[in-house]
Amino acid sequence: MSRDLDRTRAVWRQIAAVIAERIEDGTYPVGSKVPSVVDISTEWQVAASTAQKVMAHLKGEGLVRTEVGLGTFVADRAAD
């Protein structure tokens, strides 16, 4: 379900925008697990370091939270 990426713009930002859009539209509801770095790398055919930038950005924006040993989940922004 990946889209074509514009290779003239920062790829990680484009992927982060798509995942944020999926969170917003309910594809990934609050509390649900989001794709891992490996899953993002595979879906978008990007390096793991690019996928890590995506996750770091989403976490920095407060869209996701990480639980050590369990994974990364959509954050409940209303609880903040």
Rank of each mutant, 00 (worst) to 15 (best):
K59F: 04
S49I: 11
A48D: 15
W44P: 06
L63E: 09
A79H: 04
V34A: 00
G60S: 08
R9G: 00
G71Q: 13
F73E: 05
A17L: 06
G62P: 05
V46Q: 03
Y28N: 01
Q52G: 11
D25W: 11
I15N: 06
K33I: 13
V68I: 12
Q52P: 03
A78S: 11
A48P: 13
H57M: 15
T8W: 02
R22E: 15
L63R: 10
G62R: 05
S41Q: 12
E43H: 09
Q52R: 15
D6Y: 09
V38Y: 12
A10W: 08
M55F: 09
E21I: 00
I23M: 14
R22H: 10
A51M: 10
G69L: 08
A17F: 04
D25I: 10
A20Y: 00
V30G: 02
R13N: 06
T72R: 12
A51H: 08
R7H: 06
A17W: 09
T42P: 01
K53C: 10
A79I: 02
K33T: 11
S2G: 04
E67W: 10
Q14E: 14
S36C: 09
A16C: 05
A47M: 13
L63C: 07
A56D: 15
L58T: 07
L5N: 00
Y28T: 00
M1S: 14
V64H: 05
K59N: 09
R9T: 07
A17H: 08
Q14G: 02
K33H: 12
M55Y: 08
K53T: 11
R77S: 08
P29I: 01
P29Y: 02
F73P: 04
S49Q: 14
V11G: 00
S2M: 05
T66Y: 10
H57W: 15
R77C: 03
A48T: 15
V68D: 11
T66L: 08
I15T: 03
T72M: 12
A79F: 02
A47F: 12
A48C: 11
G60A: 06
A17M: 06
M55T: 13
I40M: 05
A17E: 13
V18G: 02
E21P: 01
T72E: 07
L63T: 06
D6L: 09
E61F: 04
T66V: 12
I23P: 11
D6A: 08
E61I: 04
T66R: 12
V46N: 02
A79L: 09
G62Q: 04
R3A: 13
L58K: 06
Q52D: 13
V18E: 13
I23Q: 10
V68Y: 13
R7P: 01
M1G: 14
K59Y: 07
K53E: 14
V74F: 07
A75V: 00
D39S: 12
T8H: 08
A79Q: 09
G69P: 08
I23D: 08
G26R: 02
D76R: 00
E67S: 12
D4I: 01
A56H: 14
Q14L: 04
